[in-house]
């Protein structure tokens, strides 16, 4: 089994879905980018599916392309893409019946030099948790846990990352979870948008986005992959993700029936989730 075999299976399936009218659009990848990068593409014609590709350079999260167009949409989904679909359904942004998930077992993507992407190294989900069709790869062993990374949460580290940022918002645009019609950064009243993009204002943006993603990050690494400046802000989001996981035993995008941690309240919720600090209240 290999990318090529998976690719042929996906292509045959996409052709059939489009030809049968089961879906009107397939969001997937085609070849043609520089440095071997695969490009997101929206297929609407069965004949066009010949261009479809699936390889180790299918980086972007495709969830930004799911809305729009008439009829149902199929997505060629890496496990993280599938998790994002599930999360969007949980947050009532998509309806399950409108989306056909073609899930692929995935061993991770690589950068232009062929090195595994950091998010893929840490990934612990190599089979989509929810799918309509599964394109398996028996050569990919089931993962029990991703590589553990030590997390330095010092202010110095935060500042070092922030200083690389040029505040272009490509991480926000790449993130499945950043779907607000008007981002808090773009609001006029109150004016969150920094008057002058200095270090503090960049911190405000990244800290704000991190908190908005509490319990919602699907760990796809799209933010990091999109960043041309080499900023790693994912470490901060990972910290919050782990915190939510410990507190509420919740992981975004894994279960269609689970209520998102930030959308539910129970009287017994631990106080540290509200007030922070070391106190527990129980």
């Amino acid at each position: 089994m290999s990318f090529e075999k998976q690719r042929d299976e996906v292509a045959a399936l996409c052709k059939k879905l489009l030809a049968d009218g089961a879906v009107s659009r397939v969001v997937g990848f085609r070849e043609g980018g520089v440095e071997g990068m695969s490009l997101p593409y929206i297929f609407t014609d069965p004949a066009g599916v010949d261009m479809l590709t699936w390889n180790s350079r299918c980086l972007p999260n495709l969830n930004g392309y799911l809305t729009g167009g008439e009829g149902n949409t199929a997505i060629v989904a890496k496990p993280c893409d599938a998790r994002a679909v599930v999360a969007l359904i949980s947050e009532k942004q998509l309806r399950r019946e409108d989306i056909h998930i073609i899930g692929l077992v995935c061993d991770g993507m690589v950068d232009a030099n062929g090195d595994p992407l950091p998010a893929c190294v840490e990934c612990s989900v190599n089979c989509p948790p929810v799918y309509d069709d599964l394109i398996d790869d028996p050569d990919v062993a089931e993962k029990t846990g991703g590589e553990q990374v030590s997390n330095d949460t010092s202010l110095e580290r935060f500042e070092a990352e922030i200083d690389k940022c040029i505040l272009c918002f490509s991480c926000r645009q790449a993130c499945y979870g950043c779907y607000c019609q008007t981002c808090f950064m773009d609001r006029g009243s109150p004016g969150w948008q920094p008057t002058v993009p200095g270090r503090g204002d960049k911190m405000l943006y990244h800290a704000g986005r991190t908190m908005h993603l509490a319990g919602r990050c699907v760990e796809c690494g799209a933010c990091e992959n999109a960043c041309a400046s080499g900023v790693d802000i994912r470490y901060l989001i990972r910290e919050v993700t782990n915190f939510v996981g410990e507190l509420y035993d919740y992981r975004a995008g894994m279960d269609l029936d689970a209520r998102p941690a930030m959308l539910s309240y129970a009287a017994g919720d631990r106080e540290v989730g509200f007030l922070g600090g070391d106190g527990d209240g129980h």
């Binding site: 490009l39 929206i42 272009c168 008057t195």
Partner: peptide, 25 residues
């Protein structure tokens, strides 16, 4: 342009893009 995500990164890293805005503090 259907796959453009609208992030504006291209204009920030472009050597010729020169549009600016005034901001007062």
């Amino acid at each position: 342009t259907e796959t453009c995500q609208g992030c504006g990164l291209c204009s920030f890293i472009c050597p010729t893009c020169h549009c600016f805005d005034f901001r007062d503090s």
